[in-house]
Nucleic acid binder design. Structure first.
Lengths: 194, 194
DNA sequence: AGCATAAGTCATCACTTGTTGACATAAGCG
DNA sequence: CGCTTATGTCAACAAGTGATGACTTATGCT
């Protein structure tokens, strides 16, 4: 079989493989250019398949986005025993410093932030952040305004992600991870004392 | 003149007025739906003028966005004498707690965040945040990693804006502004000691 | 009043978008 | 093999996009 034969040879038909190729390509494209900046034809081209398969396998571009931006939620990150400092540290490692090759190197939350112009995306963002992360954080604070203090910790973490992925500030990627964690711990600890 | 006459009467032609009507409508639309979610026809309809005037007065939709999201930079906010805590407090009041009727109630930075899918927008975001706010903050920190600590303060502030405008968390708007400022001050102060 | 120019209007283009349905072909089983 | 079904291909549509250029009409000056 010549090289030309190899190139022109029809690809093997494999539902699962094409589906996940599509999903991977979508994650990368959506993460980099956002929902509106990404066309179905581009996603399909990246995946090396026909654009119409998106609709066969996912229903619509929106449904594809929904599945691509679904977080495989770690569920119960940071031991329940630890205080807010411990949880914040775990989240820093996961959301901010963590690198995830699947989604083009970004956490699903950050992926959604690039498409925050769309109401449905903001709705999902609200749900995951408020009902998930913030509620978990608030539980570790004691006293009057636990919710407010949890909000500030959440803001700090989210803001770090925004700095890295949207503002593209070189500081965080260039910093010593342990130093970053230590400083964040100090800030959260200050909140615990307040 | 009857009511019908009044309604059908041609509007007065006033370049400055239509231009600023267009600009206001654009700010509101862009702030709420982002760049891609907003059409020139919608902006024009809100302003009550013809869509093509956008191109006559601004050149293109992008140029309109650029002008609509331009921050009337306060330049030298927070006395140069004050430390990071003072500057952070001033920024909290301006960016996070401040309400600006012109842009649909949001700071230009937040307006840009809803269009963060677009590279040019991220470029402007990068410029304004890094060269403006972060540089200013870093100057008030002493010691080794002033840039990193400035980054964390910036992240906290930006994150608060994201929480309010993108995640739509009810906590910050519902909280006592003075309490919020006090907690933020504590967090920044912790950074100063570190 | 009459005229020059600025301001606003209209029809329309060129293009992209998500999406659909009819068609072709490979895979797998009897 | 021969048939069925799952998988992939193709052409095209309907709607919406930003943008342009020719046209009309109000405005303000002389």
């Amino acid at each position: 079989m010549t090289y030309a034969d190899f190139m022109n040879a029809p690809k093997r038909r494999d539902r699962a493989a094409t589906r996940s190729a599509l999903l991977d390509a979508a994650r990368r494209r959506f993460a980099e250019h956002g929902f509106d900046g990404t066309g179905v034809r581009e996603i399909a081209a990246d995946a090396g398949v026909d654009p119409t398969l998106i609709f066969r396998y996912f229903g619509s571009k929106q449904d594809l986005f929904a599945e691509a931006s679904k977080a495989e939620v770690p569920e119960g990150i940071g031991e329940p025993g630890t205080g807010p400092v411990g949880l914040a540290d775990a989240l820093v490692r996961e959301v901010v410093l963590g690198t995830r090759p699947a989604s083009g190197g970004e956490h699903p939350l950050m992926l959604m932030l690039r498409s925050a112009g769309r109401p449905e995306v903001r709705a999902r963002l609200h749900e995951e952040v408020c009902d998930g992360y913030l509620a978990d954080l608030a539980r570790r604070f004691e006293g009057e305004d636990a919710a407010l203090r949890a909000e500030l910790v959440g803001a700090l973490l989210l803001g770090m992600g925004v700095m890295r992925d949207l503002v593209d500030s070189p500081v965080l990627p260039g910093a010593d991870p342990d130093r970053v964690r230590a400083l964040v711990a100090d800030m959260v600890a200050a909140l615990e004392r307040a």
